[in-house]
């Protein structure tokens, strides 16, 4: 399912947009490029006129004083004011509202994503809503990539998938992002989400998907020779489909962990 681009995404060449907060980012990008365009065209017109008008063959004696008015100061003050508006009116409030604050919504979907060279481990807490304990000493690349402590009752119903992030549409999502080895960066292009995955830290990310469909998880930070192929998949589906997917995963991981423990 291709997600349609809006006019902003079309003229700015941005990816399609599928999150609630992303529109503001796109709008800021648009405004900033508009500002750039105005300044650049202004400079360019001035530049071309000056080069033509004051070339030596036409204007053989330079004027010691040059420009004596203060229009440029007004322009500089204008730029400063616009920057202040973008900063105080858009960027800082946006950050406070959409990046910094944690969601309070009871219905929030909480997921852990743990990056490693060169894949994304996705960890759902299961029916109990509690993530099982993990321990780096228990990590086994094949059978237990997160080092889940199976003796912890909370770990029993946990679901772990690789490179497959499924989310329901129109619900608040909270992802706790971390990394096992080096820094990666978790980028959901169409969600306007990007967050470095930093070993030793667990960093919350929040957003609300507003369109169903499939897209990619990209790694944006150089993480080694497989950086270019550290790709995961994001599937946003209806609530019902999401629950069905969770149930099927629960069954699968149950049977595979049974194989492992028996």
């Amino acid at each position: 399912m291709e997600i349609e681009k809006g006019w902003l995404q079309k003229i700015m060449g941005l990816p399609p947009l599928a999150s609630a907060h992303g529109g503001e980012i796109d709008f800021m990008i648009f405004l900033l490029h508009l500002l750039m365009l105005v300044l650049f065209v202004g400079w360019a017109v001035f530049f071309i006129v000056v080069l033509w008008k004051f070339r030596a063959s036409r204007h053989s004696k330079a004027n010691y004083k040059g420009v004596t008015n203060h229009y440029s100061t007004y322009i500089e003050v204008g730029v400063a004011v616009i920057e202040a508006i973008l900063l105080l009116g858009f960027s800082i409030p946006f950050w406070a509202k959409n990046v910094d604050a944690l969601p309070t919504d009871r219905n929030t979907v909480v997921v852990r994503v743990v990056a490693e060279q060169f894949l994304w481990n996705v960890h759902y807490p299961g029916a109990d809503g509690v993530f099982g304990k993990t321990d780096p000493n228990l990590v086994d690349k094949q059978t237990n990539p997160l080092g889940l402590d199976k003796s912890d009752p909370a770990a029993k119903d946990d679901i772990v998938s690789i490179n497959q992030l499924h989310l329901p549409v129109n619900r608040q999502v909270l992802i706790y992002l971390s990394s096992k080895d080096v820094i990666h960066s978790f980028a959901l292009n169409i969600m306007r989400v990007k967050q470095d995955a930093i070993p030793g830290l667990s960093i919350p990310i929040r957003f609300i998907p507003i369109k169903t469909g499939q897209s990619e998880i990209a790694c944006a930070q150089l993480c080694g020779l497989g950086h270019y192929r550290m790709k995961g998949y994001l599937t946003v589906s209806t609530n019902k489909e999401f629950d069905e997917w969770l149930a099927s995963q629960a069954k699968q991981s149950q049977s595979s962990s049974d194989d492992f423990w028996n």
């Binding site: 503001e24 980012i25 990008i29 750039m36 960027s91 990046v99 292009n189 989400v193 944006a220």
Partner: peptide, 15 residues
């Protein structure tokens, strides 16, 4: 400028 404002930088950082 868009890289120096943290919010648009979310999309543009490391691209």
């Amino acid at each position: 400028l868009p890289l120096g404002l943290s919010s648009p930088d979310i999309q543009l950082h490391d691209t």
